[in-house]
Computed example of a mutant assay.
Amino acid sequence: MKKSILTLLSFLFISASVFAQNTVMVGGEAMYPSRTIVENAVNSEAHTTLVAAVKAADLVETLSSDGPFTVFAPTNDAFENLPEGTVQTLLKPENKDQLTGVLTYHVVAGKLDAKAIQKAIKKGKGTATFTTVNGARLMATMNGMSNVVLKDENGNTANITTYDVYQSNGVIHVIDAVVLPK
């Protein structure tokens, strides 16, 4: 009996340790590395605006594909900080191409975790330039020892607030502002 209880406790401890190492909490929900970007994002209360925009732009299938993708995911607060009416205008069917351009500006092909981004910044002598899925450039710099700052083509910045949310088809980095292409 003692042995089976110890075995069970060991299993639970190991399971909890593996869960803690492989999942990150975003928007109050666990993000599972075995799920796709879309499967995880729909569960994040902090990303409901982003999810609605991805659906309106018909990007669900793309972001559910094998990838891999690196997604810089703005929070609801980031969208709310855009000028009044911007989100509502972008979500209109007649603005689908513009919405798609904004959303794909937040995606880079490949799986770039924080170490890869920081390495690219170091290699670029302080600035890394990434070509986004929409073809425009997004720059990354360091602010201090570990904070990556993204800079869009308009000079606006966004901080990565949560790094390395691994997905089955890439990685998400949560950002505090929406970056916009020219």
Rank of each mutant, 00 (worst) to 15 (best):
V178T: 01
K123Q: 09
A41H: 02
M1D: 13
A57V: 03
L138N: 02
T129L: 01
S17W: 11
M145T: 14
A41L: 08
K182Q: 15
A56K: 07
G155T: 06
G85M: 08
N134R: 08
D152Q: 07
A109K: 15
V71R: 03
L6V: 08
V174D: 01
D164N: 12
K55C: 08
V171A: 07
G27K: 10
T127F: 03
A57K: 00
T100C: 05
L8Q: 11
G155M: 05
P33M: 09
F19R: 12
A53S: 07
S65C: 12
E61V: 04
A114K: 09
R137E: 15
V38Q: 02
V54I: 14
M31W: 05
G110K: 09
L180W: 06
E45W: 15
D97H: 12
G144C: 05
F11S: 12
L12V: 05
T104V: 07
Y32F: 11
V133N: 08
L150W: 01
N76W: 07
T162L: 10
K122P: 03
N134K: 07
E94S: 06
K3P: 01
N159Y: 10
T104Q: 04
N43V: 11
L50F: 07
L63E: 03
N159T: 12
A16L: 13
L91C: 01
I175Q: 00
V133T: 11
K2N: 06
M145C: 12
R35A: 10
H106P: 06
A52G: 09
E84S: 14
D58V: 02
R35F: 11
I160N: 00
F130I: 08
V149T: 11
A158P: 01
V42A: 10
V165C: 03
Y32S: 11
V42D: 05
Y163A: 08
V174F: 00
V42E: 10
L180H: 10
G28T: 00
I37E: 06
L12R: 01
T161G: 05
N156W: 01
T36L: 06
L112D: 00
K125I: 07
K122Q: 10
D77G: 14
V24A: 04
L90T: 07
K96L: 03
V107Q: 03
T49E: 13
L8S: 12
V87R: 02
E29T: 14
N134I: 10
M142G: 02
L99W: 02
N95G: 05
P33F: 10
V171E: 05
Q21T: 11
K123T: 06
A56H: 04
T7P: 00
L103Q: 00
R137P: 00
T132Y: 05
K55D: 09
S65W: 10
N22S: 12
I37V: 14
I14Q: 15
D152R: 11
L82T: 09
Y32E: 06
N43P: 15
A53L: 06
H173F: 05
V42Y: 04
F19M: 11
V179P: 01
L150Q: 01
D176M: 02
V51S: 08
K96G: 02
D77T: 14
M145A: 13
G135I: 13
V54T: 08
E39F: 15
I172P: 02
K122R: 14
